[in-house]
Each structure stands twice: as structure tokens, then as C-alpha cells.
């Protein structure tokens, strides 16, 4: 029997996602954002989620839609003030959603650390700022650093360009962003991918995320383009 991580539909790939889960969501703005997986979660109705992402969604599509459906209790991100953000500001201003602000590089490094078995690390980023409050300090060579802890998740929702049945992934340009490290830091990585190829068709030298970091795949051939969807007034559901 062959290894095959490709799932037949959205119901199957999301079957293990549970209420109260912590989910990493790939993407930087719309580039690399797994919109169809997020819409699948709206259909499933999973609630009380903690979302780890760089941003907090645009319009009422993808992450913006999931937040708008009040399925998210907390967002951990670096930049929750997107120009086209609608749903997060609505809930935040009413005190109905929690926010943890993390500097973008610290966010990336905390995610990578979790995926690499490193429980914490010291960094100069944030020293002397409000985001250092309550964090352990240590001096190295006379310079002050703060302790940041690894950030893991139950699931990673990821968008990739090509995959094979082993879960080897390639991405498209700056749509790579957080996706590879989130695959490493989550117990279970769920990947929506535009193209599925035979294993022999992906050059091993070109693989960005080796299949060991990926558990499940779904083929989304024509993913929604967020900018166009918002311009067309799309809302989900």
C-alpha cells in the first residue's frame, strides 16, 4: 500500500479539527492565505478557536469571514490593522475578541522554534518596549535580550502551489511566507494545493517543505483571489 495524504473532500480533511483548537493560518495578507480551508471551517462551524497568523483578515472572505462568524476567540498576530480589515476591528472595538500582538520576526521565530524542538530563545527584538513587559531578561556580552517562548498549534492551515502524495510542497513567490514554518510547528498540517503532481515530477532540489511536515492535502485548483472577491463584494457564507 502506498502513502497517500490526499483527502477526497473538505469534510474529510477537516474531520479532526475540534472546538477550542489553536490553528496557525499561513499567508501574508492574501498571498498564501488558505481561503478555501477557512471557508470549510465556517461550514463545519468549529468554535472558540485561537488563530495564529500575521494578519487578522480582510473583508468578509477567508480569515475575515471566519472571525465575522464569531468562531474565533483570540488572534495572535503582528499586524491586526489591515486597510481592508472589517470583522476583526468590529469585534475588537466591542471587546469581543482577544488580541496578542507579537513582533513579526519574533512571531516567525517562535513558530520555527516550536517546529524545531526549541522551547524558547532570547532576542533583542522588543527590548525596552511595552511588548517586553513581564518577559525574562538576560544579558549576553553586555547587551540585553528578552526570553520568547516557542509557539505551537494543533493545526496549520496552509496554501501551497504544488504537492505530491507524500506532502512535498512548493510555493509561489511571496505566497511562501509563514506557510513552511507553520507546517513544522503544528501537530497536524492541512494543506490546500493548486496542483498535485506525481512524486517523480517534483525535483527533490526544489522541494521547500518536505513531506514529513505535512499530514493532509486537498486539491483546490482555482482558489479564490481575495482582492477580486472583496472588489466583487463577496461575503462568506
Amino acid at each position: 500500500m502506498q502513502i497517500n495524504k490526499i483527502k477526497k473532500d473538505m469534510t474529510e480533511i477537516l474531520s479532526d479539527v475540534f472546538d477550542g483548537a489553536t490553528i496557525m493560518v499561513g499567508g501574508f495578507g492574501e498571498a498564501g492565505s488558505p481561503i478555501e480551508l477557512l471557508h470549510g471551517l465556517i461550514d463545519k462551524g468549529t468554535r472558540d478557536l485561537t488563530i495564529i497568523a500575521n494578519n487578522s483578515g480582510n473583508g468578509r472572505v477567508g480569515l475575515g469571514a471566519l472571525i465575522g462568524q464569531r468562531q474565533v476567540k483570540k488572534v495572535i498576530c503582528s499586524f491586526a490593522r489591515s486597510a481592508k480589515g472589517v470583522t476583526f476591528p468590529e469585534l475588537y472595538n466591542k471587546g469581543e475578541i482577544e488580541l496578542e500582538v507579537v513582533p513579526q520576526g519574533t512571531l516567525a521565530e517562535r513558530i520555527r522554534a516550536a517546529g524545531s524542538g526549541i522551547p524558547g530563545f532570547y532576542t533583542a527584538t522588543g527590548v525596552g518596549t511595552p511588548l517586553a513587559e513581564g518577559k525574562e531578561e538576560k544579558f549576553f556580552n553586555g547587551k540585553k535580550y528578552i526570553l520568547e517562548e516557542a509557539l505551537r498549534a494543533d493545526f496549520a492551515f496552509v496554501k501551497a502551489e504544488t504537492a505530491d502524495r507524500y506532502g512535498n510542497l512548493t510555493y509561489n513567490k511571496t505566497a511562501r511566507n509563514f506557510n513552511p514554518i507553520m507546517c513544522m510547528a503544528a501537530d497536524t498540517s492541512l494543506v490546500q494545493v493548486k496542483n498535485i503532481l506525481e512524486p517523480s515530477e517534483i525535483n527533490p532540489e526544489h522541494v521547500i517543505t518536505p513531506g514529513i511536515f505535512v499530514q493532509s492535502l486537498i486539491n483546490i485548483k482555482n482558489p479564490i483571489i481575495e482582492t477580486n472577491a472583496i472588489e466583487e463584494g463577496m461575503t462568506y457564507p
Binding site: 501574508f28 486597510a83 511566507n177 481575495e226
Partner: peptide, 26 residues
């Protein structure tokens, strides 16, 4: 729209350019 800058505006990549993931970029 998969090739954007930090302001999430479309940009280009020049010859000799490269892409990397977020942890490497930071």
C-alpha cells in the same frame, strides 16, 4: 498578487533576486 511587498502592494523581483520563508527573511 502572489508577488507583493511589506505594504501588501504588487511588486516585481529583479534578476538575482530570491524568495525565502518568513523565519529566514527575519
Amino acid at each position: 498578487l502572489d508577488l507583493i511587498n511589506a505594504g501588501k502592494k504588487p511588486v516585481t523581483i529583479l534578476p538575482g533576486g530570491s524568495f525565502c520563508h518568513h523565519a529566514d527573511s527575519f
